[in-house]
Amino acid sequence: MDESHEPLIAETAAATTGDASHDEHAAHDVSKHIRGYLMVGGTLLLFTAITVFLSYVNFGTQKANVAVALLVATFKAGLVAAIFMHLSSEKRMIYRILIFTFFFVSGLFWLIYLAWYDPITR
């Protein structure tokens, strides 16, 4: 299990009891991130404009355009997940849940592949 338990419990317990020094610490911690949040918001808006622009650029085939747009979308989604949803530094328990999710949703999309390439009766 996560070895970082002990200090963590102590830390959050301090928050409930209204420990002033902890409050200041947490506030300071959060205020450091605000600039980052605003920058991520700006980046997301910028890449929204970029993806709209790129959709009117002819990359040769429709498939290439789809690939470019999905690449931009994945980058944007990654930013939202990592920064806004704090996944860049989360507890191990959350990652465990998400590993399963990733596995099953990949399986779901793999089913489409089965509809096109029949590995059983071909």
Partner: peptide
């Protein structure tokens, strides 16, 4: 709701919302 559960290291709602999001 505020303190972390010892075995997960998280307050409960956080685990709950992530299970829901999954």
């Amino acid at each position: 709701t505020v303190t972390a559960r010892p075995d997960t290291g998280l307050w409960n709602a956080k685990v709950g919302i992530w299970l829901f999001l999954a």
